[in-house]
Amino acid sequence: MCGVAGIMFKNGGGSNETGRALIEMLDGCQHRGPDSTGFALYDAGEDDRLHMRFFVGTGDEDPKAQIARIKEILAEHGVRVIKEERQANHFRAVADFSGDIQKLSYALEHAAKVVSIGRSLEILKDVGSAHDIDKQYDVRHFKGSHGLGHVRMATESEVNPEAAHPFWATGFEDLAIVHNGQITNYFKMRRRLERRGFEFHTDNDSELIAVYLADKLQQDVSLKEALRMSVDDLDGTFSFLVSTKDEIGYAKDRLAAKPMIMYEDDDIIALASEEVSLNRLFPGKALNTSEPPPGAYDTWSR
């Protein structure tokens, strides 16, 4: 149903053209998902400085009323907004906050459509192609260290901005995933996590992966170990990418039913559903790529 892409620059801190690189990679595999496109982009971030994005104006409700309600909740939780802007279907706010992000997120989720909240993460996603999203959200000028991208073909659910990837693990700062495949023990896993107090905001199985990993990380399990566990715990066909403030990783199901291919050199690690996406970063050059075996997982940190 999808194509995924991820990139991490090993050098240069937060000054690399992650936005531009991911646009190219996703354009290369747009055939895998023509309906919607999304990006999870990371910069260096600052302590106690939150970047928040919300969908506004995507439903029937007046965006002004939505924004007013968002600001009301932010005020209630002692969040001091220092910058705000409208960007296509997003309302973006930058704010000072040092409290409990999970509590704030759940409160916001009940009143608004949260796209992402993070210190270094911002998710830009909407209906349309990689170039469409770039036009609306200016992805190409985003500088950072790493990021994920996703193109989606809507099948089970409708074509709407909320169903686009990447998925943020609601309440867990800076954790995003993109996923190609299908989790077949979705309801079982979801019930298990709900009993532990987690909230789900879509019926999308990709959100489950995000929350599953967030739960592990919260228990101080390393990302790599969490990925290892996911291969055993999640049933179905999947190739997914995950990113946190400092890390990027992947996992692949035991039947290797969904494609994934990777390229690594001294400067970058890049992963994608198809080599054609990786090759977009190096036009005219044959790459020394590798395809992870079934059940494989790995992580890289910057």
């Binding site: 149903m1 194509g3 895998r32 998902g33 073909m153 190609n180 495949g181 066909t237 969904k258 559903s273």
Partner: peptide, 12 residues
Amino acid sequence: ILGPDDLIIKVE
């Protein structure tokens, strides 16, 4: 053909 994404490449 393991999903609609592979299928579209097959059709092509």
